[in-house]
Nucleic acid binder design. Structure first.
Lengths: 136, 136
DNA sequence: ACCTATGTAACCATTATAGTTACAATTGGT
DNA sequence: ACCAATTGTAACTATAATGGTTACATAGGT
């Protein structure tokens, strides 16, 4: 199961896209998400590192670096996910066994295809699409 | 990240599809997967509950209930996944806030679409496809 | 100077996962 | 009838990821 950072990140970016900068502090966002401000700042840090927003110590709030139409859900997803593989493999299957020897390469390709199908779907939706769905 | 039970389950079913029944004991499978026999029996239990294989206390091994061509990777995936949602949501966003109020329903649909894209890909591949890739 | 906010580090509680030990129940061979 | 082997589970452990929390250094705005 994919962690809730993705959902929270979309929530955060939606707020930043809407509010005036000074309003969307980590404190304020935390109030909307219903969590601790540090959790927000942690995720904000990931989004910043990915180049999706800008912020500064001492200056309240944050701003998007580009238009919500230009931010795909895949951009957001990749920003907050540390593992780049969606599926896990078991380590060290027995190479003496025909199945153990070949299972990994066989699965690698299949897993990659499935992951790509999901990511393609995320790539086709923008932050603005989500905002529109919320009637913002 | 999706747990390795899925990969192990495919491994297990591949062995059962190949070997003669008496040979593919949990002990033998564990040797190929490189783990503990109980881990194998645990996953085998899930696959059995999903109707993908048959086994009996006292009788070594297991058999598939249908042809590998008729077992999709989605069947296997669903058999070993307990949560049916791929994406997590944050609980209790603030209903006083326009975003907090609408984020969940907005994401629900989007997440569902992305998950479906991935599952559709898994549904299009069979256990036999994997076996073929392993040259079995 | 003072207040407020960001950015991090450090720590904790909870949960999922995989591995392990132990054992009851059942089958088949002798 | 007995024994060995095997499945099916329960229970426990270790590890890692996650989210929440406290604490604090740093920077801006008044």
């Amino acid at each position: 199961m994919i962690n809730s950072r993705f959902a929270v990140a979309i929530h955060i970016l939606s707020l930043i896209a809407s509010g005036p900068r000074e309003k969307v502090t980590s404190e304020y966002i935390a109030g909307s998400v219903n969590t601790n401000p540090v959790v927000i700042r942690r995720i904000t840090g990931m989004l910043k590192k990915a180049g999706l927003l800008q912020s500064q110590v001492g200056t309240p709030g944050a701003v998007l670096t580009r238009d919500p139409v230009e931010i795909s859900l895949l951009d957001i997803y990749l920003a907050v996910q540390e593992k780049e593989d969606l599926f896990s493999m078991h380590e060290n299957p027995n190479p003496q066994c025909p199945v153990g020897k070949n299972i990994q390469s066989a699965l690698e390709d299949t897993f990659h295809t499935a992951q790509t199908a999901m990511e393609k779907e995320l790539a086709s939706k923008s932050l603005q699409d989500i905002r529109t769905r919320m009637a913002l």
